Simulated assay, not measured.
Amino acid sequence: MSMKAPASNSYVLLAPLGVLVLVVVVFLLPSLNGSQRVGSDGLGGVMCARRTAGADGYTAAVAVAVVDPPPPREEPELSLLVGVLTMPKRYERRDIVRLAYALQPPAVRARVDVRFVFCRVSDPVDAQLVALEAMRHGDIVVLNCTENMNDGKTYAYLSSIPRLFASAPYDYVMKTDDDTYLRVARLVDELRHKPRDDVYLGYGYAMGGQPMPFMHGMGYVVSWDVATWVSTAEEILARNDTEGPEDLMVGKWLNLAGRGRNRYDLKPRMYDLSWDMDNFRPDTVAVHMLKDNRRWAATFIYFNVTAGIDPSKLHHSP
């Protein structure tokens, strides 16, 4: 995180001429023979000094910071929206998941935004607390639906995204849950050389002899064009296909319409954590079934999330 530059890069000293001598000796003497490097305060530039005479006879010594322009920002190779479907009352879980993403190393040359998604907030207490969250973090999306898991929430999410983010569309849209730990850079590496259209990627679930009729609900990715199609596909509503096991229904939509033909199965790098919590993988993209804090803690230990904490007299780590 870059630190803010000083509010002003110009320093002005005004003094009677008799006092100015000392100031010039201490601060401006190296600059008397032209522009010399005096210091940059980490701004990547030089600080030049010059003397100007005012109309009242006083002399002003002015130091002007000449700042080098920042290097051009690299354009991202891809962009990804991660929608974490959760519920209004799960404040503690959101805080854990928020930190889990914030403390990960950034994905190289990628724009990745994480948003927490739920339906209308009906409880007045939750409404106030969620409003505080939204104001503080800016990562809350509240959909126009009644809170649910398998009665249309995923449809509301995927069909709303193209409208909500029409001004800055993404290459890919992900749906995941608040009991999934996603290693963002690993997922971005998987997507980096994939097509940007007609993509359906996740943990492929075999059913009825078909190897990948749908992706497991722990987390799956569709390309922007697929999400746009969902937002306009009247046949989904006509068949009442918004209700039912949400991951199975998404696969059904795409299969009937011949969409998402570029399918990628990330199994076994996406998986459920076992009862004994002993099946972590070093090449993990996403691990699911983190239903309590004990499982989140085990995940952080395995992936060394807190291993780099700086020593401090203010806390004593075990």
Rank of each mutant, 00 (worst) to 15 (best):
L182M: 09
V141S: 02
V84M: 05
F116M: 11
A227W: 02
R50V: 10
S35M: 13
L14M: 01
P169V: 08
E243G: 08
R90T: 12
L29F: 15
W275G: 07
D56H: 10
H216N: 07
R50T: 09
V84S: 00
V188R: 15
R73A: 15
A7H: 04
R136V: 03
K313L: 09
T228M: 03
F300T: 05
L28K: 14
P106N: 09
C48R: 13
Y172A: 07
S223M: 10
R294Q: 09
K4S: 14
P105R: 12
T232I: 06
R261D: 01
D198L: 10
Y170D: 01
A65L: 05
A53C: 08
N255W: 11
D178P: 02
P72M: 14
Y157H: 08
Y264A: 05
S223T: 07
G39Y: 04
G42S: 10
L314N: 09
M87R: 13
K4N: 13
V46Q: 11
V285Q: 06
S317M: 00
I301R: 02
S159R: 03
F280D: 10
R239L: 08
H316N: 04
G258S: 06
L14T: 15
E243P: 01
P106T: 12
Q210F: 11
P76Y: 00
P69A: 10
I96S: 07
T59M: 12
D113M: 04
M47C: 12
T154H: 01
V62Q: 12
P71Y: 11
A107M: 06
N9V: 11
S2M: 10
D151T: 11
N240S: 08
P268S: 12
F118K: 02
L43T: 05
G54F: 07
R136Y: 02
A102K: 08
T146K: 00
L85M: 08
V23W: 10
V117P: 10
R50I: 06
L248Q: 01
C145L: 01
L20M: 15
M174W: 02
M212T: 04
D139K: 06
L290E: 08
A127N: 13
D151V: 09
V108S: 15
L43I: 07
P6V: 12
S8P: 01
R93L: 04
A53K: 12
G45D: 00
K175H: 07
C48M: 05
R186E: 08
G34C: 03
R239E: 13
D41P: 06
M3Q: 11
M289I: 03
V188W: 11
G244W: 05
K267W: 12
K313R: 11
L78T: 03
D56P: 14
A107V: 14
R295Y: 01
P6G: 10
S122Q: 12
T52H: 13
Y271M: 06
R109P: 08
V84A: 03
A166M: 06
C145G: 02
K194R: 15
K153T: 14
V67A: 08
D225W: 00
D278K: 04
V305Q: 04
I309A: 05
I309Q: 00
L32F: 09
H216V: 03
N240Y: 05
D189Y: 08
Y271G: 04
T176D: 00
P70C: 13
G251L: 06
I96M: 12
V46N: 13
R98K: 09
D247G: 03
A185Q: 13
